[in-house]
Design a protein around this nucleic acid. Sequence first.
DNA 1: CCCTGATTCGC
DNA 2: GCGAATCAGG
Length: 201
Amino acid sequence: MSWTDERVETLKRMWAEGQSASQIAKELGGVTRNAVIGKVHRLGLSNRTEDGADPAPEPVAKPAVAAAAPEPKPVPAPAPAPVPKPAAAAAPAPEPAPEPAPQPASFNRRPIVPAGQPLPPQPSANEISPEALASVREVEKRARKLTLMELTERTCKWPIGDPATDKFWFCGLPSMPGKPYCEAHVGVAFQPMSSRRDRRR
DNA sequence: CCCTGATTCGC
DNA sequence: GCGAATCAGG
């Protein structure tokens, strides 16, 4: 592949948006991140060292969350419904840990959030095998608690917690090859669809 | 390990 | 000009 005007344009746009070289390379296809970086340098837009003034304008900080995000595809958050944590049997002693976070008044932003994207069909909790559920709960204790931006193609993207609060993160454990979730979450996300063996009740 | 960008240098 | 290999970090 060669650097056609169109491809260069895409490169410039994505680089300006703060996309990483590898992401740009994947988008363009046919090139490696090294090629992208090399091109970026040749184009002289690696560092914003434009004309004299302004040696450090900090072009960064583009949370993307905000307005217009014409991103046609990245959004790596399909967000299946958060696990319901049905207080399984026994163990009535849940959280001994009281949240030490009194919420500084500075957070007076209202519940805006997010998001709701159409949720994909999700098997209801009561259709999931007990083993799978137990596994999930176990795994969530070890979740890496990654933020949206920290997710990659090989981290589990299972959301945990309430997106409307600060207690929200993604599992982040190593995902199954080709799957968006770790082993435990794949177990609850992908039901054979007939596995609903009717347990009593 | 996974990932990032920066540089070098043969082509 | 190009980009793989390599370097230097996080």
